[in-house]
Simulated scan of single mutants.
Amino acid sequence: MEPITTTNFGGFDVTQPLFLEPVFHEKIWGGRKLETEFGYQIPAGNIGELWAISAHPNGPNVVANGPLAGKTLDKAWAEDQDYFGHQSGKVFPLLTKILDANASLSVQVHPDDAYAAAHERPGELGKTECWYVISADPDSYLIYGHHAKTRQQLADMIHSGDWEHLLRKVPVKAGDFVYVPSGTIHALNKGIVVLETQQSSDTTYRLYDYDRVGADGKKRELHLQQSIDVTTVPSVDPKLDITSEKVDDATITTYVTAPISPFFSVYGIALAGQLHQTASAPYTLVSVLDGAGTFSADGQDYPVKKGTHFLIPNQIKDWQFSGKMQIIESTPGETE
């Protein structure tokens, strides 16, 4: 994306959305759909993840436009809190990704904040996440949850490799939404592409990795004891209250919000025309998953299209989308 220059009206600097340079991660299970389906210029290899809005040290995005151009999002969070409503958290709390599961991911589980604080690097959050399914091959399924009734039974089934009886398989299709609280055993399987909204964490505990070997010819590390420690037993399925409403020329779907999700709220927008919105949170994360159009704020128009990701800062209090687009918005929760 070409950098968007700052415009001055009447001597006042017009606040702009923060467009971000993508960060790509090669994964053993990745593919090339980020290039073929989204048009990103990706590196060679099996690219599994696009980190679209990230301030995590393992892949912070660089701001592409405006007064913060060239600054990483983590530094912006630390030094430019006017953009974020002067939030109290030490780290930017959210991370938005697109995942291309060309092969099945490892069966895994993530810790909560308390376990991460006690066992991982300083500042690392726990990881509650959710997926909006962008595409899925026929007969696609997820690993989601387990059948163990006690932690001892969980440990026994993990150590014996009784995956057939331990793991739950759940069918999935394009347009589905899946909420994955910390402590939930899960895995994306082959043929699925998702937009992931999550806490800003890169901590994953692997239970099972299909006995695959990496580029070094060795099996990837497993984290059996950590997995046993943090898994919720018995497995609990969150009860989501997904609702939709017509607003202007859009249908807005509320996928998850507090109190079910204390860390983030996630909304889907199906737009065919115009939609006016006002800020309901300190800042808003936006991902355009399909189509093209315009984002307008403070007298400025910004072209956006499939694959565009940006952050609406605290200084922008109302805005408008125009065009035909499928959009996912997320906002931070009260827990950071």
Rank of each mutant, 00 (worst) to 15 (best):
T72M: 06
T72W: 00
T72H: 10
L73C: 03
L73T: 02
L73K: 03
D74W: 07
K75Y: 12
A76G: 05
A76N: 05
A76H: 02
A76P: 03
W77A: 00
W77I: 03
W77G: 01
E79F: 07
E79R: 08
D80F: 11
D80M: 07
D80E: 15
Q81S: 13
D82F: 12
D82N: 14
Y83E: 08
Y83Q: 09
G85S: 06
G85V: 05
G85I: 05
H86K: 13
Q87N: 10
G89N: 07
G89C: 09
P93Y: 03
P93V: 01
L94S: 02
T96V: 13
T96Y: 02
T96Q: 06
I98T: 01
I98H: 00
I98F: 01
I98Y: 00
D100I: 04
D100C: 07
D100G: 09
D100H: 06
D100A: 08
A101T: 07
A101R: 04
N102C: 11
A103R: 14
A103Y: 11
A103T: 12
A103P: 00
S104D: 14
S104N: 13
L105G: 04
L105R: 03
L105K: 04
L105I: 08
S106G: 10
V107I: 15
Q108W: 08
H110L: 11
H110Q: 10
H110R: 08
D113Q: 06
D113E: 09
A114F: 11
A114Y: 09
Y115G: 02
A116F: 02
A116H: 04
A116I: 04
A116Q: 03
A117K: 12
A117L: 06
A117Y: 08
A118Y: 03
H119E: 11
H119L: 02
H119Y: 09
E120F: 02
E120C: 02
R121I: 08
P122Y: 08
P122G: 05
P122R: 07
P122E: 10
G123I: 05
L125W: 01
T128P: 01
E129Y: 07
C130T: 12
C130E: 06
W131S: 03
W131G: 01
W131T: 02
Y132R: 01
V133W: 00
V133N: 00
V133S: 00
V133M: 00
I134V: 14
I134M: 04
I134Y: 02
S135A: 14
A136E: 01
A136N: 02
D137A: 15
D137T: 14
P138K: 11
P138E: 11
P138I: 10
D139V: 04
D139S: 14
Y141G: 05
Y141L: 10
L142F: 10
I143N: 01
I143E: 06
Y144L: 15
Y144R: 11
G145T: 09
G145F: 09
H146M: 09
H146V: 08
H147A: 14
H147C: 12
H147Y: 14
A148E: 08
K149A: 15
T150M: 12
Q152N: 15
Q153V: 12
Q153I: 11
L154P: 04
A155S: 15
A155W: 06
D156V: 10
M157P: 05
M157H: 12
M157S: 13
H159M: 14
H159N: 15
H159K: 15
S160Q: 14
S160L: 13
S160P: 11
G161T: 12
D162K: 13
D162R: 14
E164F: 06
H165S: 14
L166I: 11
L167E: 07
R168D: 12
